[in-house]
Design a protein around this nucleic acid. Structure first.
Length: 421
DNA sequence: TCTGGGGTCCTAGGACCC
DNA sequence: TCTGGGGTCCTAGGACCC
């Protein structure tokens, strides 16, 4: 048995945790740059607000209904996420963190001690008690079915947040009530194609001819169908291995039109990528940089491009990353474009520096390791006290986050005070 | 004026090899 | 007149996830 535990409207719930005055009020959280809505609580959902909607477009509606609006406070959410995971891990033998707001837990051994239903309810109660977060729990025979049960737990209030099902007939009943597009692994494209063949429910998908599914949509959909039928195709730790690539990208607060400003942004992103790389204890050999105008560009020329640099030796040194990224940028930069976004990607990640062969010159960066370690130590708290001048000072490309809440759980001066009388 | 960021996996097609 | 078969590796792009 497998359980999926998933926090309801995670970002909103984190914002509400230290703000009892928000209880019952509609709350939304914006994406980076205050661009679009990424999280919506129950009361805001009732107003018809949708995930992905641009902020500027629904702003009048938000103001009219006195909706509490927040910029993304990732530090806060990551802190809550760690506490959430710790609670579940204290109750479940094997867990796998799937994302910031959900994790899978092996529930097979629990049957000795309690029913899957009771197990789910215990998880839910403890998470709420220790973190204030409300979560939904689905328990079933594999990941896809656990997801399906979780979907049911969130959709139907009568379930009180927990659905545990393994009986084939009851699973069938559930699948007949859930849309094919709500199945984990079925996206927009596939949902549309399936509908064209008259398959609109999860049950319809479960009964689809497997060879046809594989031919039309590939092996992934085949596995999904098999799981709906009760087979196990996705292991608990699926996707847990070392990262294949690492990306740092941001939309700009405004539009970037000057090369120098773009160079600063790319330096910043390469620096951040280096920090993440060293945190993961990996070395990178391939550095790519991309720049592009907005997908919604109406005034200027649409343009986007990417350049890839392959280093002779894998590196962990921010200076190498910046240099490679700048070389790439010089190749793809075009004047007269209103750039909206840029990013730096690291690939061909390796576990340690490759050994030099006879013909490779030794590294030119003496003392690189200790220099980077020192930088990381100084900048440990996330504020860049020491940085490369190429980043620029008080840059114009910086992201907009006008409605940021305090870092309640991670910064001393932001810890809320409670007064007793 | 204003539309997120960070990932994974799979597939098709081209280059190249014997 | 005729021009194989089988393989690997890499890349780009699509689909999906949260």
């Amino acid at each position: 048995m497998m359980a999926l535990i998933d926090v309801n409207s995670m970002y909103c719930s984190c914002e509400e945790a230290f703000r009892p005055d928000l209880r019952g009020r509609p709350v939304v959280v914006l994406s980076n740059n205050d661009g679009a809505l990424v999280a919506i609580n129950r009361a805001a959902k009732a107003l018809g607000l949708k995930r992905g909607e641009p902020y500027f477009r629904c702003r009048p509606l938000l103001e009219k209904n006195n909706v509490a609006v927040f910029s993304s406070n990732y530090t806060l959410y990551a802190s809550f996420s760690a506490r959430f995971a710790a609670v579940v891990e204290s109750l479940a033998p094997r867990t796998f963190v799937y994302s910031i707001d959900e994790l899978f837990a092996d529930a097979s051994h629990m049957s000795q001690v309690m029913s899957p239903e009771a197990f789910g309810r215990q998880l839910r109660t403890e998470v709420q008690r220790q973190t204030t977060l409300t979560c939904g729990v689905g328990v079933s025979l594999n990941k896809t079915l656990a997801k399906l049960c979780n979907h049911a737990a969130k959709t139907w209030p009568a379930t009180r947040g927990v659905v545990a099902l393994s009986d084939p007939d009851r699973l069938k009943k559930l699948m007949s009530l859930v849309g094919a597009g709500d199945v984990w692994g079925v996206g927009h494209r596939t949902e549309k194609g399936l509908a064209g063949m008259g398959i609109t429910t999860a049950l319809g998908l479960a009964q689809m001819d497997i060879r046809l599914a594989r031919r039309l949509y590939g092996v992934t959909l085949e596995r999904t169908i098999r799981e709906l039928r009760g087979e196990v195709c996705f292991a608990l730790e699926e996707g847990a291995g070392a990262k294949q690539q690492l990306v740092v990208s941001r939309s700009f607060g405004g539009r970037v039109t000057q090369l120098e400003e773009m160079q600063q942004a790319v330096t910043r992103y390469a620096t951040r990528a280096g920090e993440k790389l060293r945190q993961e204890k990996r070395w990178a050999r391939v550095v790519s940089v991309f720049i592009r105008s907005s997908a919604y560009e109406t005034q200027g020329v649409p343009y986007g491009n990417q350049a890839t640099e392959v280093l002779t030796l894998p590196t962990q040194d921010t200076r190498d990353l910046i240099q490679a990224a700048q070389t790439g940028l010089a190749r793809i930069w075009r004047d007269g474009v209103r750039y909206a976004k840029a990013g730096v990607m690291l690939a061909d990640l390796q576990d340690r520096e490759t050994q030099l062969d006879l013909f490779t010159p030794p590294s030119l960066r003496r003392g690189s390791e200790s220099l980077m370690a020192t930088l990381d130590k100084i900048n440990r708290d996330g504020r860049s006290r020491v940085f490369f001048a190429g980043e620029g000072i008080d840059p114009a490309y910086a992201m907009r986050r006008d409605l940021l809440s305090p870092a309640y759980t991670t910064r001393w001066k932001d810890i809320p005070a409670a007064f007793l009388r």
